[in-house]
């Protein structure tokens, strides 16, 4: 969780996103930001994130991102 928050802070500096639950739906994370996030997440957690995974439900909150990473690690 901490690592994901750090990566989020790199992509979207200056925002507290720890309790956000609509990161994509509210427009905080646009497609550019999602791709930047994916590049860092893939690197950090050594997972393969494919276009099928790039749906709002997987990126709307830190918890959702964490759940996706866990799923992909399995």
């Amino acid at each position: 969780m901490e690592t994901i928050l750090e990566i989020l802070a790199e992509v979207k500096p200056g925002l507290d996103l720890s309790s956000e639950t609509e990161l994509v739906d509210s427009g905080i994370l646009d497609s550019m930001a999602i791709i930047q996030l994916v590049a860092r997440l893939s690197d950090e957690f050594d997972v393969e994130i494919t276009p099928v995974d790039l749906v709002p439900e997987n990126f709307n909150s830190v918890q959702a991102i964490e759940a996706m990473i866990r799923r992909l690690e399995d």
């Binding site: 790199e10 992509v11 500096p13 497609s31 550019m32 791709i35 930047q36 996030l37 994916v38 590049a39 860092r40 893939s42 690197d43 994130i49 494919t50 276009p51 790039l54």
Partner: peptide
């Protein structure tokens, strides 16, 4: 999404991470 997650772009992303600051490295490939 297809282009950004393609192998050449992921390589570009890694190369950028090694040479640029984190923000620019993430911004350049996208």
């Amino acid at each position: 999404y297809s282009v950004s997650l393609s192998a050449p772009f992921m390589k570009l992303s890694k190369a950028a991470s090694a040479k640029l600051n984190k923000f620019l490295a993430a911004l350049l490939p996208s």
